[in-house]
């Protein structure tokens, strides 16, 4: 029991971050905060990949005389890509937020929705 809770602490961190990010995306009304929540959510996935590639006692995967155990580099490489994707997503998301702010004058979701509703009926 103790082992499951503390021995796998890295995964617990992943889970906590994941839930926190997901909750922010769903529950927050501010559009910018949603993007940040999305970011946290994605970060948790990055950690998940990196932590599963780590080998206890392993060194960085650079061939050397002393080392016999290496960590698996592949997840780290994958996550390099995922980070790039994450940055791009955040950039596009924030850019949209800026333009929404310009068009609607607010970033609160309920106010945006109300304005949209009015537009729908006006059309």
């Amino acid at each position: 029991m103790f082992e499951t809770v503390l021995g796998l602490y890295n995964y617990w961190i992943v889970i906590v971050l994941m839930m926190a990010g997901f909750y922010t995306v769903i529950a927050r009304g501010n559009l910018a905060k949603k993007v940040i929540g999305l970011n946290i959510f994605q970060t948790s996935v990055f950690l998940m990949y990196i932590t599963m590639g780590a080998v206890e006692g392993g060194t960085a995967p650079i061939v050397s005389e002393e080392a016999t155990v290496y960590s698996n580099p592949l997840p780290s490489v994958l996550i390099l890509t995922a980070i790039v994707v994450g940055v791009a997503t955040t950039a596009v998301g924030l850019a949209l937020v800026v333009r929404i702010r310009e068009a609607f004058g607010t970033l609160e979701e309920d106010e945006v929705l109300a304005l949209e509703h009015r537009m729908d009926r006006g059309a």
């Binding site: 999305l38 996935v45 997840p75 994707v85 998301g93 949209l96």
Partner: peptide, 26 residues
């Protein structure tokens, strides 16, 4: 202007979907 909000919603949900996918393959 609603194109912006539609794109935003698409982005949030689409990114969630893609991230779920990455978790799955991870």
């Amino acid at each position: 202007p609603r194109a912006q909000t539609s794109a935003y919603r698409y982005l949030i949900l689409g990114s969630l979907g893609a991230t779920f996918y990455v978790i799955g393959i991870g």
